[in-house]
Design a protein around this nucleic acid. Sequence first.
DNA 1: TCTTAATGTGTAACCGGTTACATATCAAGG
DNA 2: CCTTGATATGTAACCGGTTACACATTAAGA
Lengths: 325, 325
Amino acid sequence: MATIKQVAKHANVSVATVSRVMNKSGYVSEEAKEAVEKAIAELNYAPNRVARSLYKKSSNLIGLIMPDITNPFFPQLARAIEDVANQHGYQVVLCNTDEQLEKEQTYLVALQTMHVDGLIITTNHSHNPNYETLDLPMVALDRIVKAGIDAVVSDGYEGGKLAADTLLQRGATRLAHIAGPDHLKTVKRRTEGFVEVAGDKLVGMTESTFTFKDALKASQELFDHAWPFDGIFAANDVIAAAVLQEAVRRNIRVPEELQVIGYDGIELGEMTSPPLTTIVQPIYEMGRVATERLLDLIEKKDTRPREMLLPVTLLERQTTKRKEK
Amino acid sequence: MATIKQVAKHANVSVATVSRVMNKSGYVSEEAKEAVEKAIAELNYAPNRVARSLYKKSSNLIGLIMPDITNPFFPQLARAIEDVANQHGYQVVLCNTDEQLEKEQTYLVALQTMHVDGLIITTNHSHNPNYETLDLPMVALDRIVKAGIDAVVSDGYEGGKLAADTLLQRGATRLAHIAGPDHLKTVKRRTEGFVEVAGDKLVGMTESTFTFKDALKASQELFDHAWPFDGIFAANDVIAAAVLQEAVRRNIRVPEELQVIGYDGIELGEMTSPPLTTIVQPIYEMGRVATERLLDLIEKKDTRPREMLLPVTLLERQTTKRKEK
DNA sequence: TCTTAATGTGTAACCGGTTACATATCAAGG
DNA sequence: CCTTGATATGTAACCGGTTACACATTAAGA
């Protein structure tokens, strides 16, 4: 790889001039500019970002901290973040923390020492002291870390209500629910919204993590203890898929006997049999908005902390009945 | 963030001594060592990796180039790579190329200018000139770029044969197949293996990309034109899920009337109804092996190019019949 | 004609580490 | 007592960019 010094020599100018044409800063004569551009092309020069970082204290790198990319909610988010970052000349460093504080801490210092320009956090330790002292632009995604830190989340409360409304409207009279992990505030909101609207129609409820295995176990318990119900809302699509599988196993017809609504709108919902009706979060959009916000923060465009609530929509596939007119 | 200079001053030694204790290199008296360690602790010092990179021409960063993290095969791979990298003090930079040469090229120069130490490539342009001239340690994962570049792949040919064997053994007599995209060599091997064993029992075959929508279309066509068949092998699990969904829609009972085998062993297979029998690639293992290999290459442990073929296994869930004794 | 501002360019300091090299001390061996 | 090698430490060059600053030239305005 050529260095700026070689380019300078090749073009018969000083390194300062080369730097000026690279960055379109300061004064450069047309003549010098052409010579430099020719040299750059001939030597196939690309400036060393490490050297640049050192002086500028900015790396064009952003850190993406998530629990586990393997959880099907996250790839879309990562994709959105990477797309936007890339469009603005940033790259993203992927970090899976499994929600372990210690891992998180390790990453945080690694990220800091490599001078990332900002952080996107989709992890959930509101009490996490790691972030509080951190003097780095950051935005929380799908999680609320604490007041004072930017956040983008979707409207889980409305989503929960929407799920209940839909089920009721399609004729369900005995509702059930499988909630998500208790420590995820944004997920809890879904349950709150659902319960609020379901009222005394709610006949059964349990809780599960977001792994399929756990979800299956929770489903079985629910069917064992609360059956019959004719409408169920799962806190995410993975849980809904488990419910669906368990229903099939028990020869319960969906949606005739049991209507199912999931949450998230991940691709999986398209692939179940029957395809899953679900409350979709604008996942890609959330990633996009969060990243754009982070970039603004980095470039100091607007520094007042904000919280962004994105709307949620109903996607009717085939685990709910047609709307009654 | 404290600098080495501040630490040196605080400990009343020179920067060289601080550097020596940080790197456990050269001679340092016990006395000095303690003073430095005390200063490091007090100032909460962590060395600036950017500065270190500049001198050492090594960043402890590895670039991960994949078509699209959103494709459910890749998150597990990414996770494995990230895990191993992290255990060895490396971070990974995520790049989605959508298999577009141009995007790939852009990433490649970005990655080079930030001095990544190596590359893991899960993209498929064997004719891609970008990589040929690249003087960087790299290993191809699940794809074969060209001779001379390390590769880790699983044994698709055996996998295809295994699928056919299994179907035949479970009593299927009329086989069908949906192949993957033609340009993916490793995927083509699956088809070759399957066709080889299926022989004249093969009554229908078509091709699809790995998106669910396309797979569904392909399935429909196959059912329309080649039905009846009683055993089908799909080139990956997403396609198999589509087949399954289409079978349910047509009231074809699985596995009684139609046995289905997928390929990959992603989580999705667990979530379909009924759960999918599939040929599992050791995805995490492949990521692990590839990364360990890359790290060896980076540290110049063994530099002779190698190609690693990992074995594949049958995971019987419920879209195939019980084995006949 | 003299000032002054705009234009153009090079030198060198700087970013924060690593390490070659110079220098010093001290103990062991001849 | 002198030589030699091991131990210990500091100074400064270096990695490859960016930019403050000095300096030169030219054009415009008074």
